[in-house]
């Protein structure tokens, strides 16, 4: 197993290099000029040129790439061209809201979607099954900003149970944190609940027809044990894959949810950086996202071995 993990990590290095090169070139070939964002509307061409010169944007692409790669190898992601803030500081500031949103969303998702999927499979073909699947389709079909505004209207504006917007760190206290994260997490969870409930149902339906389930029931085990210990565990592999990739997707930023609830997360940072052509920030964020995908995929693969003893590396 250890050899497998080391092999996978080593294999990810060329992937990251290709990503870095690709992102670097793609950004430089996209129209846009950070100097124009910095200078504002009144700048003359000469003033823009002066700023470009200072930012090093007039250097040949090869020189710029070598400079950036050298910085990366020494752990320096550079500074934002626009705000001059170190890129790592920017990412650090935005990581907590994004991680919090991803974790709470996934908690809500797992708490609701897996029981829904299990029940739908268990009551396959009944009204309950159809109702759960209808809810899933609805959750998947409504855009998150619509769900978000509806939840804000009901719970924040009409009932005044939760704040309308904003984020507070969990280190400021649990309730200030929770009351602000609950609506965005529920909003985002509607999609994942729909997705994972359907996935769970399909995987459970496959498993529930197996001989060992009949055997378990014949032994007189309770339905709860049959469903959750025997069936769900064997249906877990595809569910885990969806959970893992969904989690990676959330960490790399969910800009609509973050905008609707004014969460200062990585999604907003990414969009802002792209609109301003803030090259060092975009490059770092894409590398970070690629790294997250590599790590999460590795964790998913490792977890297969725990869920299914037949899988060995």
């Amino acid at each position: 197993m250890l050899a497998y993990i080391i092999r996978r990590i080593l294999a990810s290095i060329p992937v990251m290099i290709v990503v870095a090169l690709f992102v670097f070139l793609l950004l430089r070939l996209t129209p846009g000029d950070p100097a124009a964002i910095i200078a504002g509307d009144m700048a003359t061409p000469a003033q823009l040129e002066q700023i470009r010169q200072n930012l090093g944007l007039n250097e040949p692409l090869v020189t710029q790439f070598i400079t950036w790669s050298g910085q990366l190898l020494s752990g320096d992601f550079g500074r934002s061209l626009i705000s001059k803030t170190p890129v790592l500081t920017l990412i650090h500031q935005r990581l907590e809201p994004t991680l919090s949103l991803a974790i709470v969303t996934m908690l809500f998702t797992l708490l609701l979607s897996i029981p829904m999927g299990v029940v739908a499979a268990w009551r396959h073909g009944t009204l309950t099954d159809s109702a759960i699947m209808a809810i899933s389709v609805l959750g998947f079909s409504i855009p998150v900003f619509v769900t978000g505004y509806i939840l804000i209207q009901i719970f924040a504006i009409d009932m005044r149970v939760f704040p309308i917007q904003g984020f507070r760190s969990i280190f400021d206290g649990f309730w200030p944190f929770f009351e602000r994260i609950v609506l965005p997490a529920l909003t985002l969870a509607t999609i994942y609940i729909a997705l994972i409930a359907r996935m769970t149902r399909a995987a459970m339906l496959d498993v529930l027809g197996e001989d060992y389930i009949r055997t378990a029931r014949a032994k007189g085990l309770s339905e709860r044990i049959v469903l959750f210990r025997h069936a769900l565990r064997n249906a877990a592999v595809p569910i885990l894959t969806v959970v893992g990739t969904g989690f990676a997707l959330m960490i790399s930023g969910v800009v609509v949810t973050e905008s609707v609830f004014n969460l200062p997360g990585l999604g907003r940072l990414t969009v802002d950086a792209i609109l301003a052509r803030d090259y060092p920030v975009i490059q770092a964020l894409i590398l970070l996202t690629s790294g997250i995908y590599v790590v999460i995929n590795l964790l998913i693969d490792i977890s297969y071995a725990f869920m299914d003893p037949r899988i060995r590396y």
Partner: peptide, 13 residues
Amino acid sequence: MPDVQTAVNAVNG
């Protein structure tokens, strides 16, 4: 606040 509707909700609330 990047979303104007959110800003309007926030000042309204």
